[in-house]
Design a protein around this nucleic acid. Structure first.
Lengths: 328, 328
DNA sequence: TTTAGCATTCAGGTTTGGAGAGTGCTAAAG
DNA sequence: CTTTAGCACTCTCCAAACCTGAATGCTAAA
């Protein structure tokens, strides 16, 4: 589609614009392309006709269009090595085994956010194929219990249970035994149904305070699907020169405030996915680069949000590195 | 200190400025004060000499100074009833018993953030006087365990424990028994010391994989002091007209990004505390209104951050209401 | 003590006029 | 056929100049 010189030109413009955030004029390029500015202008005009470049107004320099970035990402950019500093900072996280995995992921994405000056997101724990490993109850006072549920992948949920009357510990123990007997080994996403149609009838029959106990466990299980959301470095993306307008900033911050909006950033396939500008649902002025991780049945998504003028090569390499380390 | 008319004037100016965010001129006031604009100007001049009012420039209207707000808060404002909408929205939260307390608090502060258009903060769980109620271990695989700790107030922590060699369940069970025997009933803030000087020697003696097990539990306990931070409605405060400058907004958002900065907002005494402008450490252009809650030995702070031009009367009433509901 | 009147001050919006950067087009040169 | 130099043109950005309106402080009279 593009000849060699055009591709080289596009590469220069994209990479220059990523660095400087200013429209690129023809004069600035003729050196690297060994021709005069007029020639460059002709080629630029050609690329603009193809929809790969844009002008802000008749006499500004050129800026890559979404299609231009897309071409760059698909055909031009090459993976890049991590540099020393990046390696160092990230390795200390993953070498430190004392951190629980989810903390390590959150922490490493915080670091990447700092390193890149973009905003990072971790969507964790869609552990719907975990299986229930143990259900446990701990009495706190006469009317206050804690219900604990642990899965075979080490995911833990707990719930307060408040009884209206003083509770009979024997009844509680019996409920727990019933639930354990009937539920252990069941995948999380099948538990609700099983509780409702198999366990509830049994409990109703032989437990006095069946409502409260049943509801408590039912709630505990339903929360497994509530995905955790970590956003880190919201202010980083605001430092980018494209967000230099108070209203625009407020709009972006509102979007980050809205956890449901964030949660809708879900993974596609298992590779690195790049959504440039209007290709994503979040905001037309940003690019989202994300990837899915999956380890021990725990799945999640890590993502970076930056301007369309993102350092694609670097970010892709960083995310690949994190993904590799998470999945061990 | 102030005569009646001056106090009335200050009240009008503060409340008008809170509503409109524009400097108040003398003409606008002469009606409510039954005198001419010239008289108002004279009184204004007086209040300015006392440091209660300020001008942005020689011919702008007057604006309350920090000292002016302080005088208003200390001497003029009166508590205000909640209105119907506010009551309604908040009551549904606290009536719904199925929510765990900490979720109810977080949720109610989210609502207050929406209701007021300020930013809300919940600093939770400095549960240092909770006592350990139960320690439990759940095996996941040969080398992977979950350590659970529950306190007498229903606070739960869990930790992954990864063993290098296959673990002997007998040893694990023995460790848990030892810890339970020695630690149950100990206040959280004394556990670290007790573990180190009393439990560790015992474990060292009779448990083979003592390092790993010991460390896992030690970490679980140390995390109890990690206070949770919930910030809600960051973008709300940005809508206030005083933050209409991109750099200023970025600065504020950075401050909200920094969880340690947020955590440093701590309670003073048990009432409602108001910190206007430079009276707080967070930012000179905001007011922080906060209060401590304490229930079942769980302590925390709830706060609202808004412009100095805050709706003091309303916010104080709202926070008092929440506090009352939390503490039951 | 209060008021009316008046000169003064200043923010904010609009207008004007280069300076600078970059473009497209044309015609000549390779 | 491709490349280049030259030139008129376009548009942003910035600063200076100007006007308007809101509010002030002060003075002198009521």
């Amino acid at each position: 589609m593009l000849n060699e010189r055009q591709e080289k030109l596009l590469k220069i413009i994209v990479e220059d614009y990523i660095k400087t955030a200013r429209p690129i004029g023809s004069k600035a390029i003729c050196d690297s392309l060994n021709c005069s500015s007029a020639t460059v202008r002709n080629e630029m005009g050609e690329l603009e006709n193809l929809g790969l470049l844009e002008k802000m107004h008749t006499s500004s320099g050129r800026v890559p269009s979404e299609k231009g970035y897309r071409y760059y990402v698909d055909n031009i950019m090459k993976p890049k090595e991590l540099n020393g500093e990046e390696m160092l900072k990230l390795q200390t996280i993953f070498k430190n085994n004392s951190l629980a995995l989810s903390d390590a992921i959150a922490r490493s994405m915080e670091i990447i956010s700092e390193l890149t000056s973009y905003t990072s997101i971790v969507l964790g724990k869609q552990s719907s194929n975990n299986k229930v490993s143990k259900v446990e109850i701990v009495p706190i006072t006469d009317t206050h219990l804690i219900a604990l549920v642990v899965t075979d992948q080490g995911h833990v949920e707990h719930r307060d249970v408040i009884m209206s009357d003083t509770v009979d510990m024997k009844e509680v123990q019996k409920t727990v035994e019933i639930i354990n007997r009937m539920i252990v080994g069941t995948p999380i996403n099948e538990v609700s149904a099983k509780l409702e149609y198999e366990v509830k009838p049994v409990i109703n029959e032989c437990i006095a305070q069946h409502d409260v106990l049943y509801n408590a466990f039912y709630n505990a299980f339903s929360d497994f699907n509530k995905s955790e959301v970590h956003v880190s470095g919201t202010s980083n993306i605001l430092m980018q020169p494209e967000f230099d307008n108070a209203d625009r900033i407020r709009e972006i911050v509102s979007k980050f405030d809205d956890k449901t909006k964030i949660s809708s950033i879900k993974e596609d396939d298992s590779g690195i996915n790049i959504y440039i500008g209007s290709e994503n649902e979040f905001d037309d002025d940003v690019t989202i680069i994300k990837t899915k991780y999956s380890v021990n049945g725990e799945e999640g998504t890590i993502a970076l949000i930056g301007p369309k003028r993102m350092e694609y090569e670097r970010v892709v390499t960083l995310l690949e590195y994190i993904k590799k380390n998470i999945e061990g």
